[in-house]
Design a protein around this nucleic acid. Structure first.
Lengths: 340, 340
DNA sequence: CGTCCTTTGCAAAACGTTTTGTATGTTGCC
DNA sequence: GGCAACATACAAAACGTTTTGCAAAGGACG
């Protein structure tokens, strides 16, 4: 009762030839067969539960309808899920399936996984990173349509999609300034990656538009973790003229800021407002009060990458695109006007 | 320069027949060809970068070497990553690839995704849930080897793997009692799922072994979220004879307990010890102090499921297994002896 | 020296599709 | 009524493997 019924069985049951069944079931060739016959064949096929063997059709067409998604680390980051989901949804909508592999940080393993994908004749690959960084895609992917996801490739011939880091920083500044804040600080990632750079630039630009400065002593960096954020926030909030608002590189660092505030007896948002980046449900929603944060559009980026990949497969001549997806603000309860 | 080289090219380059190449490269038939010739062929194949087309061999062998993983929700839970990774690692080690699909809570979509997997001739399926619950696997999977992951199926013919919930509860009790606690409370999930039931049973058993009771007013339930845990903890810790230790259903609920403690001016672990379940890096590691917790073995379960699936594929007669994977304690800093 | 076995290599068929080219039957037109 | 044109259906080849059955060559033995 398994997937045993093949096109020959359908042909026999419908009393026609295999060719006719194939034509009837194919969108493009159905004109070659009588409309009534098409109906009949479809009915019989449905009845028999016929599902064409994609291995066979892939072999014949040189088109497996499988897409590869290779990422650096699925396990450790909570973003991976949204990315994969976005990619998978887009693939599924267009009759494709996704093969997910991940390599950790092991280059040799990565090579191997990519070879495995190639053996399975994937039509193309999404090469994903879990945060916006600069990468060079492995040579193995030469000749295979590839989209770079949440990273920028040194090979500009490859399409890529990243969050609009600049815009996120800008919007965060806008939010805090219009809430009335003037003494504002930023806790940034100490690593000099595009994400850190872009958010800072945007934040500065957003502040500047309202004539607000970000003096050097209100820009601190730390390890991108709760502990890093906590430590940085403890320093900032202990200062004599402490800032009334904090923009944190990530929700995790923002969580550290919450801990620092609680430790110092400061209330959020009454004494200090906090804005994060990521919109990790697990953190932003869990903090008390909820954390207002700039959502990283991982789902949308996953979708975009697959859609772009499919479109490049359709017409191979297309020129590459470099997309920036906006990061919408998700307001919870961590921002209020300053007290005085 | 893509994956253009096929077995025929190798044969030509090596000056032998296609058959001989196939035999030489196959583990089982390599005895049919001269050892020296095997070496030569392998050398040529390597030189040419030959990689056999799995679509073709899958078609021929009726064995695609693709495994399906269908899950309810990848996006929203941070466990998915570890599960997928475990499954993928195990698959990769045995020369298989994983196709991940997920259905949300939409049954129709699930059916559709499963059909898609079947069209791609997956050799078997891992049917995963994101927390231990009771499921009935969809009829579409009839006839396809299936393993149930992090759930128990009403069809006992299907192998399944779940965490050892009972053992986790037991170990948590052991930890708290040997630290010296006697007034101990539990904050459980209000939903009556195997996870909640098992952990409570185990916790009770663990306490009982040391003559400690869990009176009704020290067993409270709440929504399995930070807010739910916070609310429950606020109630417990405001009681006249407040408990000195809390066992929480999840790390998220434990995070709520942290917030309640901070709110009430209680220090962890000095005033109250806390134990969670899950070992979510994002939370357990982020809390201050770090949260001691029972790790849910998602990675291992993912591995186990795939390994079991592969073994059932090898010998189809095997009887089903129902595995419980232990939940190791991960100690951080949230447990200390009671003050008085 | 002939026979029989063993070693080694190959030709051909099969897996389930899709597509091209062709054959059959039907209709319309002169 | 004959022929062209068209609609419809089919046979066969191809995609890249694996495996079965068979042939050729070489060695051992009587």
């Amino acid at each position: 009762m398994a997937t045993k019924v093949n096109i020959r069985d359908v042909a026999k049951a419908a009393g026609v030839s295999v060719t006719t069944v194939s034509h009837a079931l194919s969108e493009t060739h159905s004109s070659r067969v009588n409309a009534q016959t098409v109906e009949h064949i479809k009915a019989v096929a449905g009845e028999l539960g016929y599902a064409p063997n994609r291995l066979a059709s892939g072999l014949r067409n040189q088109r497996s309808r499988i897409l590869g998604l290779v990422s650096d680390e699925i396990t450790t980051t909570p973003f991976a899920g949204a990315m994969i989901q976005g990619a998978q949804d887009a693939a599924s909508e267009h009759g494709h399936l996704l093969m997910v592999v991940n390599s950790g940080l092991d280059n040799e393993l990565e090579r191997q996984e990519i070879r495995a994908l190639q053996q399975h004749q994937v039509d193309g690959v999404v090469y994903a990173r879990m945060f916006n960084q600069r990468v060079s895609v492995p040579a193995e992917l030469q000749g295979l349509p590839t989209i770079v996801l949440d990273a920028t490739s040194d090979n500009t011939a490859l399409s890529s999609v990243v969050p609009d880091e600049f815009g996120a920083g800008e919007a965060a500044a806008e939010l805090l300034v219009t809430a009335g804040h003037r003494r504002i600080a930023m806790i940034n990632n100490e690593d000099d990656i595009p994400a850190a750079h872009g958010r800072l630039q945007g934040f500065r630009a957003g502040l500047a538009r309202h004539g607000v400065e970000l003096p050097a002593d209100r820009l601190v960096t730390g390890h991108p973790s709760t502990a890093g954020g906590r430590q940085a926030a403890l320093g900032l909030l202990a200062a004599p003229e402490r800032p009334t608002a904090l923009f944190c590189f990530s929700d995790q660092m923002a969580m550290g800021a919450y801990q620092a505030a609680c430790h110092l007896g400061l209330k959020i948002p009454a004494d200090v407002s906090v804005v994060g980046v990521d919109n990790l449900e697990l953190i932003a929603d869990a903090l008390w009060p909820g954390l207002s944060t700039m959502a990283l559009p991982h789902y949308e980026m996953g979708r975009w990458a697959v859609l772009k990949l499919l479109s490049e497969l359709e017409n191979p001549g297309a020129s590459p695109a470099h997309e920036k997806v906006p990061c919408p603000l998700v307001e919870r309860g961590s921002v209020a006007p300053p007290k005085n």
